[in-house]
Simulated assay, not measured.
Amino acid sequence: MNFKQKKDRGLVTMRIMIFFMAMMLTSLNVAADESWVLALDKDQLQIFTKTVPDSPFLAVKGVVKINATLEQVAASLGSDNECAKWRKMCKSTRVLARPGENERIVRMVIDLPWPLADRDAVNRIITERCGETGRVTLLIKSEPELYPDDDYIRAVSDGRFELSPISENATQFTFVMHTDMGGDLPADRINKRMPEATAEDLNRLRMLAEAR
């Protein structure tokens, strides 16, 4: 076997290895996605839930197609200094600090129905932009130790908002959130209502963005 044949065989072997590695990574990603359970699917909107270790509250993921530009959807999300019109459970919200150009710390008061006590949450929100795809991601990380307020039970909330352009006038919005409300709350009641409540929020966001 000459040098060229050895080189060609080596390239073929490498390509096969890369192919199988890619297949393994794809399988791992699919397995991770399978932990989400479809709870609702209608009008180009899907809601998924999944269990979270050491928490009685489910995580929720919503995926919706919005016939609006990414900029219109982003503008409809709100400013963080007032409750976004699409989030029904928001009682008040305020930016407490801006540690960086694409980073802010936001406090939100969550309006729960009587006789349940309202909660508050303090989150660090980091905005990331992908130049290649145009996708914008807002990473939401709970900061429960910051800015304590004895008037409220502190909730712990982590997740992300993802805006991905589908076309010039269409955007996919992905909402992922897990909130542990803390205190003595009936988790079963919250979990049962969560898919429909999330769908209502995302439908309101879609209407706001498409009306711009």
Rank of each mutant, 00 (worst) to 15 (best):
S167R: 03
E145R: 07
V136F: 03
D180K: 07
R98G: 02
S157L: 08
G182A: 02
L112H: 02
M89K: 09
V176E: 14
L112R: 02
L146K: 06
R129Y: 15
K85W: 07
L139F: 12
E103W: 08
E71I: 02
L146R: 08
L77I: 12
Q172G: 05
P115V: 04
G134K: 04
L146V: 02
I105G: 06
E71G: 03
E101W: 09
G100F: 02
N67W: 01
E143H: 06
D188V: 10
V122W: 03
W86T: 06
D118Y: 01
E101P: 09
N81Y: 13
R160D: 11
L77D: 12
A117D: 12
G182T: 01
F175M: 00
R124L: 15
G182E: 11
E101M: 12
P99C: 01
T127C: 04
D118C: 04
L146M: 07
M89R: 11
C130G: 14
A74E: 15
S157D: 13
V136M: 12
V73K: 03
C130F: 15
S157F: 05
N169D: 14
L116T: 04
I126M: 13
D184W: 07
T133R: 00
V109W: 04
C83E: 04
P99Q: 00
V106W: 07
D158C: 07
G183T: 08
L163C: 04
I66R: 00
R104Q: 14
L112F: 04
G134V: 01
S76W: 09
R94D: 14
N102S: 12
V122L: 00
L138R: 13
T127V: 13
D150W: 12
I140H: 00
L112W: 03
D180M: 08
I166M: 14
R124T: 12
I125A: 07
A117T: 08
E143Y: 08
C83F: 06
D180G: 09
Y152C: 00
V73P: 12
T174P: 07
N123P: 10
E145P: 02
R135V: 14
T69D: 10
D118P: 02
D151H: 11
A97H: 06
R119N: 10
R154P: 11
E101T: 12
Y152P: 03
A68E: 08
A117W: 05
I153K: 06
T69V: 07
T93I: 05
D149P: 08
A74L: 14
T174G: 05
C83H: 02
L96Y: 12
V176C: 03
I126N: 08
L139Q: 15
P113F: 09
S157P: 05
K141S: 13
L70E: 11
G100V: 04
Y152V: 02
V176F: 11
T174V: 14
N102W: 07
A117P: 01
D150Y: 10
M181R: 00
G134Y: 02
P113G: 05
P186F: 06
R87C: 12
R135K: 15
D151Q: 13
A117R: 03
V106M: 05
V122P: 02
I140L: 11
K91A: 12
A170K: 07
S92E: 08
P148M: 05
T179E: 01
K85Q: 13
L96V: 09
V109D: 10
I125G: 08
V156G: 01
R104A: 09
D180C: 07
M177Y: 02
D149E: 13
A68T: 10
G182C: 10
D111M: 06
